[in-house]
Design a protein around this nucleic acid. Structure first.
Lengths: 337, 337
DNA sequence: CACTAATGCTGAATCGGTTCAGCAGTGATA
DNA sequence: TATCACTGCTGAACCGATTCAGCATTAGTG
C-alpha cells in the first residue's frame, strides 16, 4: 500500500492552493479564470505525482459515489442469466460506474441487511434483478431510492422495469414454423404456467400467431422445464401415437429432452419433426441439428436498465420491453408432404 | 432519498456527545467506562432514528472500506465459470464485505484504468480471477495491494493463488474407468495443449494413473474443446475403425460431441463405450445417459480465495490446490467382455 | 481537609475533496 | 485621485465518523 497522494500534495508541488488545483483538475478552470501557466503547473504536478482523487472523500462531500448496487435473487443457479450481471457491469463501466454485485438467495432478511449496507455506502442507484422473469415485491427501502427492475416487474408497476418481450417471442417462434409451411400438428411442450411471465406470455404469443394464420396448437405436452421430464413426457406422448409435425419447446432444456426422445425413436429433426425453442442458451447451438431458438437478450436488457438509471428512467414508458432475437438454425424444415 | 441520520443526531437525541455515542455504537463501551443508563439511551436513539453509519465517512478516516475488487478477464463467455463470482460474493458477504465485480475483457488498458478507479475507492483487497486456469501476468499496481489470484497463477508465483487440482482430477478420471475394470482401448479426446494448465495437467494425471495400473492410453483424438470439432474428429476416428472401450473427454463440451458421434453410429453408452469427462457443467447431468464428470469446484475455490484474503494468505502455502469432486453417473460401465 | 484515583464524559482535530465567500492586484474610467 | 471592473487566486467551512487528550465530578485515603 503505497502512500496516497492528496490534492494538497499536488497543490504544494504546483505552488498553489488546494482550491486552485481542484478547479484545474476537475476541468472547471474556465469558470474560475485560472491562468494557463498555473493550469499547466497543476496538471504537471498531478501527473508526476500520479495523483488519484480519493473517491471516499469526494463522495462524502458530494453524496455521489459512482457506484451502483446490483441485487439479484439467485443468478447463480441459471448459468446463462449471468449475462444480466455482465451486461450491467459493462454498461455501467461505460459511464464510469462500478457495480456492487449482491445475491440475496431469495432471503428477505438477508436482502434487508444488504440494502442497509448498500445504503450505508451511499450507492447512487439500485438494479433489482431476477433470474427468471416474474413479478416481485421490492423492499420498501428501495422506493426511496433510484431503482430499476431488471427481468422482473413490480406488482404495482411503481418502478421502471426492463423485461424481455416474451409475447412477441412467442409469435416469432410460431412464425418461424408457419413461414416454413407448418399449419397442422404443431405441439407445445412445457408447462405454460410454471414461470409466471415467460410461460404464459410465450404461450399467448404462440396462440395469437397461429390464430392469425388460421390454425391452432394441436395440443400441449405438459412437463417441467427440464430435460428429463421433457424426455419422459414427450417420449410417452410419442409412444402413445403422438405424431407432431412441429414442436415448440418452452425452453432449450425442454428441447434437449425432446431431441433425446425423438432420436431414441429414430425420428429425424427436421425431416420428420421441426423443433423451435426459447432462451438460446449455449446448448442450442451445440445440439445436432443446431436448435432454432428465440434468445433471451440479457445483455441488452441490462444495458437498457443502466441506461434508464443514467437518464432518469422515471420519464420512460415502462415496463420497457426488449425484443428477443430469433436465431434460426437447422432444426426447422418444411412439414412432411 | 430520505434524509440521512448522522451520529450527531443520535447523540443529540440521547443527550450526550458524538464521542460517547460512537463508543457505545461500536461496542467499545467497556473500554471507555460508559454508564449503563447512557448506553441504553444511545442505543434507543439509534434504533428509533434508524441510524446507519456512513461508510464513506468511516472509510475516509479508517482507510477500511469492507469492499473487495473482483477483477476477471471475461467470465461471461463461459457460463459455468459464473460460480467463481458468486462463490466469491457469498464468501465475502459472510465476512461483511461487498464485491465490486469488474471485467477487463482482457484489455490491459481497461484493466489499468479499472485498477486505478478501484484504488481511488480504496478497496481493501483484490481478487484477480481468470476464466480458465492459466498463467497470468498481474498488473504491477497489484503487487502493492492485498491480492489473491483465483483460477490462475502468477509466472513468478509471487501472489497467493487458488487453482483446481487438475492433475489429481486426471488421476480420478482414469481411476473411475480402472475401477470398473477398463484396462485397454482407453482413448483421450481433446487437445491436451490447448489450455495451458488444464489440458496438460489433466492429461498428465491420466497417464500417471494408467501407468500406475500397468496400462496406458490407447491413443488420442485431437480436437478443439467444443462439441462440433469433437463430433467431427471422434466420428472420423470411429469411421476409421476406432473401437474404444472407454473415452476420456477433456471437457463436457467435447463429451457432448462424443455422445453425438457415438449415438449417430448406434453405439451405446455405457454398454459399448464408457465415457468420462471434466468440468461437470449443467450439461453433464442432462445428457443421456448422465455423464460422469470431474467437477470444477468454482465455488469452493472462490471461498478459499476469500479466506486467504481474510487471514493474510501470505502465510499459506501456495498455490492452494482445491480438490475436484468426482461425479459418477451412468456413463461408465464395465468393459465389453 | 487536602490529595489521589476512579468514573463518566466531551472538545477538537483528523481523513481529503468540494465549494462559497472574498481578497489582492492591475488597468480603465470618471 | 477615487471608483469600478476584471483577473487570478486563497482561506476556511463542510461532509460524518474516528480518536486522542483531557476535564469535571465523586469516592476513597492519609
Amino acid at each position: 500500500m503505497r502512500d496516497r497522494v492528496t490534492l494538497q500534495d499536488v497543490a504544494d508541488q504546483a505552488r498553489t492552493s488546494k482550491t486552485t488545483a481542484h478547479y484545474v483538475l476537475t476541468g472547471q478552470d474556465q469558470k474560475l479564470r485560472i491562468a494557463e501557466e498555473t493550469r499547466r503547473r497543476v496538471l504537471r504536478a498531478a501527473t508526476e505525482l500520479r495523483y488519484r482523487p480519493n473517491l471516499m472523500a469526494k463522495g462524502l462531500r458530494t453524496q455521489v459515489t459512482r457506484s451502483i448496487a446490483f441485487i439479484s435473487d439467485t443468478v447463480a443457479t441459471e448459468a446463462y442469466a449471468g449475462n444480466l450481471v455482465y451486461g450491467a457491469i459493462a454498461a455501467a463501466a461505460e459511464h464510469g460506474y462500478l457495480l456492487f454485485v449482491c445475491e440475496t438467495g431469495g432471503d428477505p432478511e438477508l436482502e434487508a441487511s444488504l440494502i442497509g449496507d448498500l445504503a450505508s455506502r451511499h450507492v447512487d442507484a439500485y438494479v433489482y434483478a431476477s433470474l427468471f422473469t416474474r413479478e416481485v415485491q421490492i423492499p420498501a427501502e428501495l422506493h426511496f431510492e433510484r431503482t430499476v427492475l431488471l427481468n422482473c416487474l413490480a406488482a404495482d408497476n411503481s418502478s421502471p422495469a426492463v423485461i424481455p418481450d416474451e409475447r412477441q417471442a412467442g409469435r416469432d417462434a410460431a412464425c418461424a414454423l408457419l413461414d416454413r409451411g407448418h399449419r397442422r400438428a404443431i405441439w407445445l411442450v412445457g408447462e405454460p404456467g410454471e414461470q409466471v411471465l415467460a410461460g404464459a406470455q410465450r404461450t399467448e404469443g404462440i396462440r395469437q400467431a397461429l390464430s392469425d394464420a388460421g390454425t391452432e396448437l394441436a395440443g400441449t405436452v405438459d412437463c417441467k422445464w427440464w430435460p428429463e421430464p421433457a424426455y419422459e413426457q414427450f417420449g410417452a406422448f410419442l409412444d402413445d401415437g403422438g405424431d407432431p409435425s412441429a414442436v415448440i419447446c418452452l425452453n432449450d432444456r425442454v428441447a434437449l429432452g425432446v431431441y433425446q426422445a425423438l432420436k431414441a425413436r429414430g425420428r429425424s429433426i427436421p425431416t420428420d419433426v421441426s423443433v423451435v425453442s426459447f432462451d438460446d442458451s449455449d446448448l442450442a447451438a451445440w445440439l445436432q441439428p443446431p436448435l432454432s431458438s428465440i434468445a433471451l437478450p440479457h445483455r441488452q436488457m441490462a444495458a437498457e436498465a443502466i441506461r434508464l438509471l443514467m437518464t432518469d428512467g422515471a420519464l420512460a414508458e415502462h415496463p420497457v420491453h426488449v425484443a428477443m432475437p430469433v436465431r434460426l438454425r437447422e432444426s426447422i424444415g418444411p412439414p412432411r408432404s
